[in-house]
């Protein structure tokens, strides 16, 4: 099973690298779905089956469907694609690439000297997760529901078509 972890990690990293370098947004979206499915497989082999299912259902399912809807609504043509190609020359990548490599080096450096336990491979069952979720973390669940409500209201408000401004009528003071 260790090989499954390393292979799906490789797939996730390659697919993510392709996401940030694609020109066409639909191609990037498909690679992103591959990356999310690979991460779901990593979760499964690490013994977190509930979260693996959530990753497939919500990330690779619901959130990606939202992206597809918006891409269909906006009906982006080849015009934007040409402009994106001009933005992809290597000189733009140097600065952010160096920054990200420095950050990655720091993350690796911090992790090197640590005494971390190996992942034991026994699974943390959905029962344990839900007992903790609705026990000590019940307040977090309530806050998450408020956040979702705020997201719903915000998305509805922002997604409206803006009506053309009314001509001021004579009755208005």
């Amino acid at each position: 099973m260790n090989a499954v972890f390393y292979i799906s990690s490789l797939v996730a990293v390659i697919a993510t690298a392709l996401v940030v370098t694609r020109v066409n947004v639909v191609h990037a979206l498909l690679y992103l779905i591959v990356s999310l499915l690979a991460v779901a497989l990593i979760f499964f082999v690490l013994g977190a089956p509930f979260v693996a299912a959530l990753e497939v259902l919500i990330y690779a399912g619901a959130i990606m469907v939202l992206f597809v809807f918006v891409i269909m609504m906006l009906n982006l043509g080849a015009r934007g694609e040409r402009r994106q190609k001009a933005l992809l020359n290597p000189s733009i990548w140097i600065g952010p690439g160096i920054l990200a490599i420095v950050l990655l080096g720091e993350l690796v450096y911090v992790l090197i000297g640590q005494e971390l336990p190996p992942t034991s491979g026994s699974e943390v069952s959905p029962k344990q997760v839900s007992l903790a979720l609705f026990g000590p973390y019940a307040l977090g669940v309530e806050l998450a529901s408020v956040l979702l409500l705020a997201g719903l209201v915000g998305a509805y408000h922002l997604g409206r078509r803006v009506a053309p401004p009314r001509a001021p009528s004579k009755e208005d003071p």
Partner: peptide
């Protein structure tokens, strides 16, 4: 189930995070 060192999983997470940062 896999018995990989925890560092390796965290390395992959850090690498994915840095790729996303480059994208932003």
């Amino acid at each position: 189930m896999a018995q990989v060192p925890m560092e390796h999983g965290l390395y992959v997470a850090g690498l994915l995070f840095c790729l996303g940062l480059v994208g932003v």
